[in-house]
Design a binder for these strands. Sequence first.
DNA 1: GATGAATGAGTGTTCATTCAT
DNA 2: CATGAATGAACACTCATTCAT
Lengths: 190, 190, 190, 190
Amino acid sequence: MRTKDEQKRKALIEATVKLVNEIGFAASSVSKIAKEANVSPSTLYVFFKNKEDLLVSTYVEIKMELSRAMLNDFDDALPIRDILRNVWFSAFKYISNNLEYYQFIEQFANSPYSELVDREALEEHFIPLIEVLHRGIAHKIIKDVDRNLLAAFLFHPLSFLANPRLCHDWQLNAQELETAFDMAWDAIKL
Amino acid sequence: MRTKDEQKRKALIEATVKLVNEIGFAASSVSKIAKEANVSPSTLYVFFKNKEDLLVSTYVEIKMELSRAMLNDFDDALPIRDILRNVWFSAFKYISNNLEYYQFIEQFANSPYSELVDREALEEHFIPLIEVLHRGIAHKIIKDVDRNLLAAFLFHPLSFLANPRLCHDWQLNAQELETAFDMAWDAIKL
Amino acid sequence: MRTKDEQKRKALIEATVKLVNEIGFAASSVSKIAKEANVSPSTLYVFFKNKEDLLVSTYVEIKMELSRAMLNDFDDALPIRDILRNVWFSAFKYISNNLEYYQFIEQFANSPYSELVDREALEEHFIPLIEVLHRGIAHKIIKDVDRNLLAAFLFHPLSFLANPRLCHDWQLNAQELETAFDMAWDAIKL
Amino acid sequence: MRTKDEQKRKALIEATVKLVNEIGFAASSVSKIAKEANVSPSTLYVFFKNKEDLLVSTYVEIKMELSRAMLNDFDDALPIRDILRNVWFSAFKYISNNLEYYQFIEQFANSPYSELVDREALEEHFIPLIEVLHRGIAHKIIKDVDRNLLAAFLFHPLSFLANPRLCHDWQLNAQELETAFDMAWDAIKL
DNA sequence: GATGAATGAGTGTTCATTCAT
DNA sequence: CATGAATGAACACTCATTCAT
């Protein structure tokens, strides 16, 4: 028996991201993805149950990587503003360095495919972050509002600013990035 | 000679929105859309050049309606904060009342189809709003930053909060909506 | 609008019979059938819902033709033996002249596809025949046994004798056919 | 060195019968058969040259078992009618107890696969039976007709009566079985 | 002996679009 | 204007089989 070639799985995920970004879900056929990954279309089915499974797996894998990147240098000992600043900059860095991945998950999240994902399992990874927000509220540093509202101002502007598909012809420089975080902080701080 | 039946065009647009939201671009075939609109697939080609034209036209039509709704009660005489508040609430109202439309344009904007749209033509409608921001900057009421940054904090959180596909299991009530605008204003005000 | 071409439907049915007889259900792919019928595979779906529908429709169509042929010169006024003799010979004639059709329905009836057919609708056509058997029983001409038993000896030997797939290297001649009917009659007569 | 595991061969034959009866030749893929037999698809090729070989072998194996069962208590010393009666009842018993096997060989015999079988080798097993018929003819007990005709009335009705796929919603009871044999005998006796 | 990985060829079906009416 | 018939191209997926282990 041969052993399963993990490189092929990886190549399929990469090819999926590339093609979906370039031509969208609609046009990203199994055979095109397989060709891009240099495997036979039938080989795809050795690694994934079907096309849907491939797409969802790709999404979950990237989302996990993003959450890992964001919480990479998470340090509970720092002041709350610094913790959030670190997460914010880590997120921006990951997105900037992995724009393709990021555009894929944005497109995915806005499509009906998003309903196929086990959201709770993914949210688990953000628990430390959510706890920081709660602490901020308790310490009267952050506004006492629903965490969806906090997330809306803390991270959603970032996702817009970092995504060239939405924010055309404009790139944040280092200083503007700092300004952007200040604005986010102004929005949520008490 | 009958005139092109405008009702059929409308029905096709509606059917497109409905199906794309439910099953995505990939699965929304011309024949399914035609069936949903109660016309023959070939009739679709009387109104639209092809499938792509149908999708782009649908997007543009909704986007125009949205901009009209947002600037509906635009009154240059009001204080800047009030102008923006009105626009903000109008936007929220339109999105809430036309969630299907809104989800469609979000899904569209995050897909490669978005590149087919004449962005500048659409942006024209927002010129009065952009001018208000410039005035705010000139009057030292609003932070002197790129208008993309202002938009990121003024409108993007709203798009997240109003979209149940992104912001699950949570709905803004009237008071939280007010709080949300306050947060947006805190972010952009000097 | 073009009008549906009934010849194409007929060609598809013929092609189905031919191929299924030659290579079996397993190997009779939609594309092979379409090619044999000189239409595009997709055209097949204009006339039939799917492959299963094509196969079942083919079966039902032949079965109807067979029943019509068997009861063609049915004459209730004749003595019972003569009625059955006429049906018997009509059946033999139809089978001999349409061996391909007959082999198809035999193969179909012995496959799991047979469960998809509305048997009762088909049996309706044989009601006059069944009534003759009942009359024969009432008049003490035919054995008083279940009609399945009568059918088993009246028609099933015929289906074996006429089917070269089962009864190899042997063909009934006119005199043997007469003998065969005598044997059937011996089996069922009182 | 392990010896070829005869249990696995048996399991593959059983799985073939089961699946072909349930879903037909067309849908009975090698991998489904292997899964049903709890072996790997490639293991199948240790025991059989290919799929065709598996199907033909299954047929031959069952046909042999059937012939053995029919001639099990064959006793040349008995009167001809009793010999045939014994064979008839043995056949009925085997079919009733092994309906799955029987339906498989009927489906097989009515398919083009049947041409792949060495018929003569199989017929050899029925030689004693054929000789009894010849003796019956010589003794003026049985009609002097081709043996195919005799078989048609002696065994073919049985195959219809015992096969629920053909003879729906009706089961022979012990007495009717006796009647059935009487009818067969009436057909062939002089 | 036995098996899971791997695949080219092929499956049934739907696609976007055109055509004749 | 509006449509159902028709289709080549493509779809997602499974096939029988081989290969390395």
